[in-house]
């Protein structure tokens, strides 16, 4: 049986778990608290695949239209 790895699918952009300091920086840059970040479920297949835990923030690097490369962040929730 084949194992499905969602991270390799072309619809799925790269997800990277942020270090705690990076999260602090991020929150400071945008002057926001954690609860103002977009969310991603801990049960999300990609979150599971990269082994991230609730409370952590993932950095998502979207490639392609129209900026070429854009970065967004999501807070992992239960």
């Amino acid at each position: 049986m084949k194992k499905i790895d969602p991270t390799h699918h072309e619809l799925v952009p790269e997800h990277v778990v942020l270090e705690e300091e990076e999260v602090e920086d991020l929150l400071q840059i945008y002057n926001i608290t954690r609860d103002k970040l977009p969310l991603i479920k801990a049960a999300d297949p990609v979150v599971k695949a990269i082994g991230a835990r609730p409370g952590q923030v993932v950095k998502i690097i979207r490639r392609g239209s129209p900026a070429g490369e854009a970065v967004t962040y999501r807070l992992i929730i239960k």
């Binding site: 840059i29 945008y30 900026a67």
Partner: peptide, 22 residues
């Protein structure tokens, strides 16, 4: 002003409007 798109509760929808702010 920081070119993020937010709703009225301050929730960030996009970190840069349309990814390149154009």
């Amino acid at each position: 002003y920081d070119r993020t798109v937010r709703d009225n509760t301050g929730l960030v929808i996009q970190f840069m409007y349309g990814e390149d702010g154009v």
